[in-house]
Design a protein around this nucleic acid. Structure first.
Lengths: 168, 168
DNA sequence: CGCAATTTAATTGCGCACAATCTAATTACG
DNA sequence: CGTAATTAGATTGTGCGCAATTAAATTGCG
């Protein structure tokens, strides 16, 4: 996808057109570009991760879940959901598949039976070692310095926060 | 989602741990953070767009397709796909639904019957007016200046390009 | 204590994204 | 010209993400 996408072209054109509320339009058009840039970058990351995660038998969202569990084993579905911004509609089947792959186990919490705790199996823990190569390769594919990546990351996190609070 | 997600915590921990290949690990860890920040921001945009697009009867991907068509009406499926980075597996059913909504028409190209050209209906063209309010509202929700949004957009487009070329 | 309200995870339904495959049309080449 | 190779879009299959709903468990309140 080397050509500028439609939304971006659209954003530049309002500047040339004579519009009644011109101050509002350029800002809105630019925002369309930003959201589309994020859309495109997110898909690009998915495509970059796929060949690396295929040998591990993981999809990218499953990889994120595994990372959350490597960080904190045994947390309930709700905890994983809060960390990843996903609800149980997404997580339930995803976790089921991870269980079927033998990477995690799902157990009802004894003290609160509404909760289902997700624990890593031995196989699931050992997979963390293979995952290191994945992140190294992605690090190279990103193609910028650590500081630049960090700066961009911080801006995106701030943007996400602003979008989320604007919903309220 | 106010707490730091697992991948981000994971990224900070390798710095404290004594690892044999420490120069590679922080970069890879940080990249995990960056990809997750994009994942989160993309979802946040989806959530921000939904209440605005629901009254128009559009989903966010459909909205992007409409924007591409408002910019250039009558292009073939392949052209839309190139602009949005989507293949016919995604676009075919999506365009069918837009056709069923009466917003577009799909016609076989007379000169090359493999191609299907997508044209806006009157209803589809008029919808552009309603879409202006959507982009204004999103512009406010983004919550930063035009220059900042432009700068962030440029970095993301560059990142996407680098990721895409690393695949080759 | 009893019951309404809330919480948690699972399920249903729908649209999206992509790999693989298929069908028909077009192009390229001997 | 005939045929292999390629192209374009549709289809099949799978996993993801979310709204709405459901069932069971827990909490809150009178």
């Amino acid at each position: 996808m080397k050509s500028a996408p439609g939304p971006e072209n659209k954003a530049h054109q309002p500047r040339k057109a004579s519009q009644p509320n011109e101050p509002a339009r350029p800002a809105a058009g630019l925002d369309a570009m930003l959201c589309f840039a994020i859309y495109g970058a997110a898909h690009a990351f998915n495509r970059s991760y796929k060949p690396l995660l295929d040998p591990l038998g993981l999809t990218y969202p499953q990889f994120l879940v595994m990372m959350a569990l490597w960080d904190e084993d045994g947390q309930p579905v709700k905890g994983i959901g809060e960390k990843l911004g996903l609800d149980s509609g997404t997580l339930s089947p995803l976790l089921k598949r991870l269980e079927q792959s033998g990477l995690v186990a799902r157990q009802r919490d004894r003290e609160d039976e509404r909760q289902v705790r997700i624990t890593l199996t031995d196989k699931g823990r050992e997979l963390q070692r293979d995952a290191e190569g994945v992140m190294t390769a992605i690090g190279h594919a990103v193609g910028c310095s650590l500081d630049e990546a960090m700066s961009l990351r911080n801006e995106l996190v701030a943007l996400k926060e602003r979008l989320s609070s604007a919903d309220e």
